[in-house]
Design a protein around this nucleic acid. Structure first.
Lengths: 333, 333
DNA sequence: CTGAAAGCGCTAACAG
DNA sequence: CTGTTAGCGCTTTCAG
């Protein structure tokens, strides 16, 4: 059923129907007529046709690298919450961590179909730069800093710094680190930098071999920890760039007969659900993922209202969650 | 830029451009002309306008109760994978477990905007029945059985039966159960039924107070387990309807000084990542969530092709993952 | 193989 | 407050 048929059924004109669904410059009588007809027929206007006319789709494209990751899921929840309140819907695409797909989707969204884009980013390539420059709809980037675009990100550097400092303050002296690829400026580079600066601020040296680069999964954390532990160097703490990695490291330590935290402390970053259920609960840094999603959505909404505005970067704070895995060593009585 | 402007720029007619992007009844020469112009201008046809004409949106609505749940996230990943291969995109809405919102979104999708709907369901109300009956686009329901609709679900009954039987076979005699609301036919009722039938098949009796109903979170599992343990009745195993609950129960047991599995065995259902990192790794039933998403998407694709077809229900199998939490008690030497 | 022309369902001036 | 009218950008007959 289309608007013309419906108008006839309701006994009013097309325009009246249109007005009913839009501004509403309408007499009470017609309004009632239309309401009754809707009840009877179940008519609803075609969004696509509205789109063609008005040029707004009420759709926001969301590009995510991996849905089954706690942090992404929470960010998307935040995004979804504020956007749906404003009558927007999410067009969700999964890039599966494939940079080519990310670019492809950005391309798809570039001039079409959506009013704006929220991009949960991890790694940027020159291709990204090219397509981001050409976007005709506003874009908000979440999780990474990106010059010239609206960004919402976490304070990865300080988070790592703080977690490492905690362990040093508790008397640790022999640091090890399990990180992720530095192509990821946030989770890779910034967290490593934070770790290193905490060390240098405390006059502690470290060798290259004390730092491992893992993939984003527990299993990889386990293997890298094993490499560290078997190296012969005796570490008294390990900072891991993610909780999954920390959980893996914890497993490795126990297998090697090391007690956590007595023999070796471990901390992660992200404060995922994992941290509370591991054999030894894991100290971690809590990031506000849901809030990041909320802020990103609001930022996008703002760009959608006022036309051009100056790009802003919002950096969210964090909380250090101390748990058993970094509990103070036996106090000197 | 619209098709008319673009056609002019390319030096061809509107129809030629349209044909280029559709069937392609076109001479090589024009084809090249158009390709060059695309390269130069970056033109892409407006999907909305195409939609109005063709009546297909290449959009599938996906209704989920909670994104930050491992099972949902995996199902959506499966859905996304096959649908995006076929050129469909996901319109994702989060019902936040609110039945009213679910109905609202179904309503929204009923006759509009999307070509089909995939509904990750938990609880059905009469309102659901009403709106589902009125849907004009194909719907696939995931995670629940629903008469008269296409469904993909897990074998909740047998899963619970199998997990319980495992513990009975290992010599357990005093069962306890922590479940979820029976309004949820799958995770609530079917799992409880499976548990109860395993008991009766083995001639074991149980009292009402041995069974608790929790909410879907770890914390709730913890509390309910505490209630059980403090009741004075001495249980030798607990079956939990979800892994989160099992993780909570595990915590409670340890706090009460019970060793798992020596003093008490615990098993969950869902085989989430949790199970591998808990202090005692948790036995659980592995469901094929990702596969469920894939199957649901394919089912929808089928309905989209051939018009009316008979509703089908696909029940996926499972695997019992035995871990330390149900390891055999000290063998009688 | 091709262009002209007639809509798809809707909104937004415009003149009452 | 209301109906008429002219498109939005595209696809698809139809007659070449």
């Amino acid at each position: 059923m289309n608007i013309t048929e419906f108008a006839k059924a309701a006994g009013v004109s097309k325009s009246a129907v249109s007005r009913y669904f839009n501004d509403g410059y309408l007499s009470e009588e017609k309004r009632r007529l239309i309401e009754a007809a809707i009840e009877a027929t179940g008519y609803a206007p075609s969004v696509q046709a509205q789109n063609v006319r008005t040029r707004v789709t009420k759709l926001v494209g969301v590009i995510i690298p991996k849905l089954s990751s706690e942090s992404c899921a929470r960010e998307v929840e935040g995004i979804s919450q504020v956007l749906s309140e404003q009558g927007y819907q999410l067009l969700l695409v999964n890039s599966a961590n494939d940079p080519k797909k990310e670019v492809e989707y950005l391309e798809l969204f570039r001039s079409n179909r959506v009013d704006g884009v929220i991009f949960l980013a991890s790694v940027f390539t020159p291709l990204h730069d090219a397509v981001l420059k050409k976007m005709r709809v506003p874009v908000v980037i979440v999780g990474q800093e990106y010059k010239g675009a609206n960004c919402v990100c976490h304070d990865d550097y300080k988070a790592a710094y703080t977690a490492e400092k905690l362990m040093l303050d508790k008397g640790c002296k022999k640091p090890a680190f399990i990180g992720v690829t530095e192509q990821d400026k946030a989770a890779g580079q910034a967290r490593k930098d934070g770790f290193l600066h905490a060390l240098s601020d405390n006059g502690i040296n470290i060798e290259k071999s004390d730092m491992q680069t893992a993939e984003f999964k527990m299993d990889s954390g386990y293997k890298k920890a094993l490499t560290l532990l078997r190296s012969g160097r005796r570490y008294d703490h390990i900072l891991c760039a993610t909780d999954n990695l920390a959980a893996g490291a914890l497993l490795a330590c126990r297998e090697q007969g090391l007690k956590v935290p007595e023999d070796i402390m471990i901390a992660g970053i992200g404060d995922s659900q994992l941290c509370n259920v591991t054999s030894t609960p894991l100290t971690s840094v809590h990031f506000h993922y849901r809030t990041a999603g909320i802020e990103a959505a609001q930022m996008l909404l703002n760009s959608l209202k006022r036309e051009s505005s100056i790009p802003r970067t919002l950096t969210l704070g964090f909380e250090l969650e101390e748990r058993e895995s970094t509990e103070k060593k036996c106090e000197t009585v």
